[in-house]
């Protein structure tokens, strides 16, 4: 129960951080990504501020045997980048530059009730399902050839 309350309050604080920093304004995001135009470096400070705090918190967590309200840490291991990761990040970046929204600010902005936000978030959900579907079909394809392989009869 306490862990769920933490999740809710963290969500509220995260949203306030996004709103105060300017991340919920697509024009601000585009200004940050426009390195060759009228560049607005503000959002670099969002990342720097967030990373400074989380860097310390992560170091501290390494000395804890378990989180305060849960049985264990669900932190991914440090592995090497692969093609899927790079391709996925590239596609995400293109969408971010096109719409000016990444997932957090888009979901927070649902509170505004503005149509462009709703359109973006619904499309984002379709994107998630499209990925699930293509992954599912991909796994079928790897099974199918074995299933339909012709039987050769030795003479």
């Amino acid at each position: 129960m306490k862990a769920l309350l933490t999740s809710f309050i963290s969500g509220v604080v995260f949203a306030l951080g996004l709103g105060i920093s300017g991340m919920t304004r697509p024009i601000k995001v585009i200004g940050f990504l426009d390195f060759f135009g009228n560049w607005d470096p503000s959002l670099a400070l969002v990342m720097i501020g967030a990373i400074c705090v989380y860097f310390v918190a992560y170091r501290y967590s390494r000395r804890m045997s378990a989180p305060m309200l849960a049985a264990d840490f669900a932190v991914p291991p440090n592995r090497d980048p692969d093609t899927r990761l790079i391709l996925g990040a590239a596609i995400f970046g293109a969408g971010w530059g096109l719409g000016g929204f990444c997932p957090g600010p888009a979901i927070t902005s649902l509170a505004s009730g503005a149509t462009p936000v709703v359109v973006f978030v619904v499309a984002m959900a379709f994107g998630v399902y499209l990925h699930a579907l293509t992954t599912h079909l991909g796994s079928l394809k790897t099974i199918a050839p074995a299933a339909v392989r012709p039987v050769t009869i030795d003479s």
């Binding site: 306490k2 862990a3 933490t6 999740s7 309050i9 963290s10 969500g11 604080v13 995260f14 306030l16 951080g17 996004l18 709103g19 105060i20 920093s21 300017g22 991340m23 601000k28 200004g31 009228n38 560049w39 607005d40 470096p41 503000s42 959002l43 400070l45 969002v46 990342m47 720097i48 501020g49 967030a50 990373i51 400074c52 705090v53 989380y54 310390v56 918190a57 992560y58 501290y60 967590s61 804890m64 378990a66 989180p67 305060m68 309200l69 849960a70 049985a71 264990d72 840490f73 669900a74 932190v75 991914p76």
Partner: peptide
């Protein structure tokens, strides 16, 4: 650079860091 809002952006970033840190230290989640 006329739209530069360093203070608001830094404060917002710190709040995001605090929120993510709470998720890690209390709930163990990313």
């Amino acid at each position: 650079m006329q739209n530069f809002t360093p203070l608001q952006s830094l404060i917002g970033g710190l709040l995001i860091g605090v929120s993510a840190s709470a998720m890690l230290l209390l709930d163990g989640k990313v």
